[in-house]
Design a protein around this nucleic acid. Structure first.
Lengths: 201, 201
DNA sequence: TTTTGACTTCGTAACTTAAAAAGTCAAAAA
DNA sequence: TTTTTGACTTTTTAAGTTACGAAGTCAAAA
């Protein structure tokens, strides 16, 4: 396989891996399959990534970057804080439904230290952008909140938690069927509505 | 072992099982250990319960009954709906900290059909009593809510979800350390505060 | 500098098995 | 007749093994 630059090849690999990962999950995807898709050897992959886990992380980071950037675009340009928070839930829904098979939700078993760290960073980034929106809401007189950081964290965690409490059982693979996924997102919206009401000025 | 009645013996067994279960967990407790505690034979236990699972369920039901009755007492006699909801969270905290080792939280693996069904019933009972409180709040003019059923379900599920989203990882055994447990309960209170605000008249 | 085939190492699923725990029952005791 | 029990069988599970597929390495080639 020929590419103009090292970065470009790296990106091609990430794309191929993403395709496989979203279809079959990372653990069911072999390095050989990715290599075959790219018509290159498996050894090549190891020229660009130290190991499979690093590659997996890179895929996740790429997705996460797009996810957060779209959210932050929303947070940076707030007309109505209420509207912004609602948009955030929609963006989240879009992304999760696209990339739920990526094994981001490896919260229980596995969960290397590094991944946990990255997950934490992600949460903090999501909270930070909620803080920004809430502060904008305070500034505009929409909200009345003493501690935006605490409230933002609470909102993010409460929404995330519905992922686990709404289904009546959690499958080993952590997957939700479509119907349950829709229900969870619906609940997130309902919660957000009450929550916004609860912090209104 | 001698007792006055069949029911009394059944209850003695339940007590012994509860002691073992809370200390070591149900799966680490053998029928022989329970029998030895009671100075009776294992076979006797099978005279009162068809199998270990049924016994486990009976223990859980006994605890749950006390749990719900205390909550329902609160729900049946509401002065301030707001206060009642806060009290509910406190009751929940008390019970969970006492009986968290009972393997009630077997949500992922295992999870027999019957247990899932009982869990669902429990959730519904908890929601029902929240509905009662919220309706009382509406009647007294504290709250302004169109669909108390939906709101009650949302509140219960959002609180329950924090159990999973606040810890940065979920251990296989589903246990929380004390510090994390306190944090989760604190978050439940925070959420409740915003939530109550969000449904105020 | 990048790629590769041939290689070694590692992880896991599939068996095996031995011990422990669940569960049964006919007979004894109350 | 109701309750209890020791001796029994069956089932579950933890531990150990193996074999295969996938991860990862490297010297040589492009």
């Amino acid at each position: 396989m020929h590419t103009e630059s090292k970065d470009e090849m790296r990106d091609k690999i990430l794309e191929a891996a993403l395709r496989r990962f979203t279809h079959y999950g990372a653990s069911k995807t072999t390095m050989n399959e990715i290599a075959d898709d790219l018509r290159c050897s498996k050894a090549s992959l190891y020229y660009y990534f130290p190991d499979k886990k690093a590659m997996h992380m890179a895929v996740l980071e790429k997705i996460a970057e797009a996810y957060f950037q779209e959210m932050e675009k929303e947070a940076d340009n707030v007309n109505s804080a209420t509207e912004a928070l609602i948009r955030i839930v929609d963006i989240r829904k879009q992304f999760i439904s696209k990339f739920c098979r990526l094994e981001i939700f490896m919260l229980l078993k596995d969960a290397s230290d590094l991944m946990l760290q990255e997950k934490k960073k992600g949460m903090e980034r999501e909270i930070a952008l909620h803080v920004k929106i809430i502060k904008a809401g305070i500034a505009s007189g929409e909200f009345n909140v003493k501690n935006p950081e605490q409230i933002a964290e609470l909102l993010v965690q409460a929404c995330a938690g519905l992922r686990f409490s709404v289904p009546d059982h959690i499958r080993e693979d952590m997957d939700l069927d479509d119907e349950m996924f829709e229900l969870v997102m619906e609940k997130q919206k309902q919660l957000l509505e009450v929550f916004i009401n609860g912090i209104k000025a």
